[in-house]
Amino acid sequence: MTAADRLAALESLDSETLCARAETALAALVEVMNRETTFLRAGHMREATALTAEKTQLAQDYVGLARAVQRVSARLKAEAPERVEALRRRHESLATQMAENLRVLATARSLTEAVLTDVARSVGATTAPKTYGAPGTAQRAQSETIQGLSINRAL
């Protein structure tokens, strides 16, 4: 089934069913984003990362439903105006939740990057020689010592 077929199938649902499915998908997406934000605030990066696949799938589901709702909005407003209004308010709360989630993600990334940079500097500082050679000058680092630390900045 193509994306166009899936969208057409969603558009053909009755108003109550389409709105209910969109609300359910939206609630699930907000819930997983709340869990991710909570994990990130607590510094539990692995637990937050474990939610990525679920969050991605829920976001894809919601986007498909939101497109269907948007394409048949005139029919939905005529047949179920209160459901459409409730869905609009919940969608606005998703925007607020996403902004908070992105802020926390940026903070976690920045903090992680700062910690790793400090570790790299510390490791590099310990490889410098701390003794003098025979002519009274600092000895050069030998090639066997640690030359640096590789940091994967993808978060």
Score class of each variant (00 low, 15 high):
9 A>C: 03
18 L>H: 04
90 R>H: 04
20 A>M: 05
148 G>S: 09
128 A>G: 02
51 L>S: 05
17 T>D: 09
19 C>V: 09
79 E>R: 11
40 L>D: 03
76 L>A: 06
86 A>H: 03
56 T>D: 14
42 A>N: 13
7 L>S: 10
25 A>I: 06
35 R>A: 15
146 I>V: 12
129 P>Q: 08
37 T>A: 08
135 P>N: 08
36 E>P: 07
117 T>Y: 10
21 R>G: 07
106 A>I: 00
93 S>F: 02
11 E>I: 11
58 L>Q: 10
92 E>D: 11
8 A>H: 08
56 T>F: 06
49 T>P: 00
66 A>Y: 00
123 V>N: 12
119 V>Q: 02
124 G>Y: 00
105 L>S: 08
68 A>K: 05
23 E>D: 11
113 E>H: 12
116 L>V: 01
115 V>A: 13
52 T>D: 13
46 R>L: 14
144 E>F: 13
71 R>A: 15
24 T>H: 02
117 T>Q: 15
97 Q>E: 06
94 L>D: 02
85 E>L: 06
92 E>K: 00
123 V>F: 07
47 E>P: 02
149 L>T: 12
50 A>Q: 09
45 M>W: 13
76 L>S: 01
72 V>A: 14
63 V>R: 06
28 A>C: 05
98 M>L: 11
25 A>V: 06
65 L>D: 05
28 A>I: 00
83 R>A: 12
105 L>D: 02
71 R>G: 10
24 T>I: 06
105 L>K: 13
16 E>V: 12
136 G>I: 04
87 L>M: 02
71 R>P: 09
22 A>E: 03
108 A>P: 05
103 R>E: 13
5 D>S: 04
107 T>Y: 07
32 V>T: 14
32 V>L: 11
142 Q>R: 11
133 G>F: 01
1 M>Q: 01
151 I>A: 04
43 G>S: 07
85 E>D: 09
118 D>W: 08
1 M>H: 01
70 Q>K: 07
108 A>N: 04
120 A>P: 01
75 R>K: 07
69 V>Q: 08
5 D>T: 10
101 N>C: 05
143 S>L: 12
128 A>V: 10
92 E>I: 00
32 V>F: 05
14 D>P: 02
139 Q>W: 09
150 S>D: 10
72 V>S: 15
41 R>C: 05
109 R>C: 07
78 A>V: 02
145 T>Y: 15
67 R>V: 11
101 N>F: 10
55 K>V: 08
35 R>G: 11
88 R>C: 00
53 A>V: 14
3 A>N: 13
84 V>A: 11
87 L>E: 00
97 Q>V: 08
71 R>K: 07
63 V>C: 07
136 G>T: 01
6 R>W: 05
26 L>E: 07
82 E>V: 04
100 E>L: 09
34 N>Q: 15
103 R>N: 12
59 A>M: 11
22 A>S: 14
49 T>H: 09
33 M>H: 14
130 K>Y: 04
124 G>L: 09
8 A>G: 01
13 L>W: 03
1 M>F: 11
146 I>S: 01
133 G>R: 04
92 E>A: 11
152 N>W: 05
92 E>V: 01
87 L>W: 04
41 R>I: 09
64 G>P: 01
103 R>W: 01
107 T>D: 14
13 L>N: 08
133 G>T: 01
60 Q>A: 10
51 L>K: 05
13 L>R: 13
23 E>I: 01
45 M>V: 15
106 A>H: 07
93 S>A: 10
60 Q>Y: 05
124 G>P: 00
97 Q>M: 14
